[in-house]
């Protein structure tokens, strides 16, 4: 199982690095959007809540490009059946989930670094912020990986995935934004309940997705 998982991940990483779609489009998307927001506002945004909202919107839409990409690639190149005849669907799901988690965390970290760099925002609770960003981006990946598969199987690149994912991730989105905003304020607070919420959300959706994925990832 571990070996099979590793082979799948290895294969996906190799392909992503060689096709450079995630690297070039997704990462540059997040960089460009962050910089253009700094450009548009002159780097001055006064409300912590607004900072947090912009930050998460950038992360969400950068994620939208990649989270379904790993499935679209398999469908568009008709390699899905190649995977299915060699590995159980759950292994495929877990490998895609892990890749999405890594990519989301990388995006989140990158976005926050550029954000702090180009837009003047005072971070009072740096460690909390990192923890919330990681928990939030992980739960984005957990919640939307199977929806990415649905969008890919529906054969609709573009808007559909965002439409499907948005209502589902909204609760985690609001919680993440609220608690991220607190990190830009001087007051002392505890991010624990927010992080627990985010992790619980991802655990529940991840578990359900794990059970449901084999029902859709077959019959190609």
């Amino acid at each position: 199982m571990i070996k099979a998982l590793w082979r799948n991940i290895q294969k996906d990483i190799l392909i992503e690095f060689r096709s450079r779609i995630i690297v070039s489009i997704v990462l540059s998307f997040s960089v460009i959007v962050t910089i253009s927001i700094g450009f548009a506002t002159g780097g001055i945004i006064n409300s912590p809540l607004l900072h947090a909202a912009i930050l998460w919107i950038i992360i969400f839409f950068s994620g939208m490009n990649t989270l379904s990409h790993v499935f679209f690639r398999e469908i568009e190149e008709s390699t899905a059946l190649f995977g299915v005849i060699h590995y159980p669907a759950v292994v495929i799901y877990l490998s895609k989930l892990l890749i999405n988690c890594c990519v989301m965390v990388v995006i989140a970290i990158m976005v926050i670094i550029i954000y702090v760099f180009v837009i003047s925002v005072s971070v009072y609770h740096g460690i909390y912020l990192i923890a919330i960003l990681i928990a939030g981006s992980l739960s984005l990946a957990f919640a939307t990986t199977v929806i990415g598969a649905i969008a890919a199987l529906a054969g609709a690149r573009g808007g559909l995935f965002t439409i499907l994912a948005f209502p589902v991730v909204l609760p985690l989105f609001t919680v993440a934004i609220q608690s991220t905003a607190r990190c830009f304020e001087q007051q002392v607070f505890s991010p624990l309940s927010a992080i627990i919420f985010l992790l619980a959300f991802s655990m529940v959706l991840g578990m359900v997705s794990y059970l449901l994925f084999p029902y859709i990832w077959r019959e190609f």
Partner: peptide, 27 residues
């Protein structure tokens, strides 16, 4: 695959909805 895709999406949404309706507003 339409029935399968629809039902999987609906179940995911169904599972997420308690967070939506009860948990998030209270946080």
């Amino acid at each position: 695959k339409a029935p399968m895709l629809e039902s999987v999406y609906l179940i995911i949404a169904f599972v997420a909805s308690p967070f939506l309706i009860f948990v998030a507003p209270r946080l």
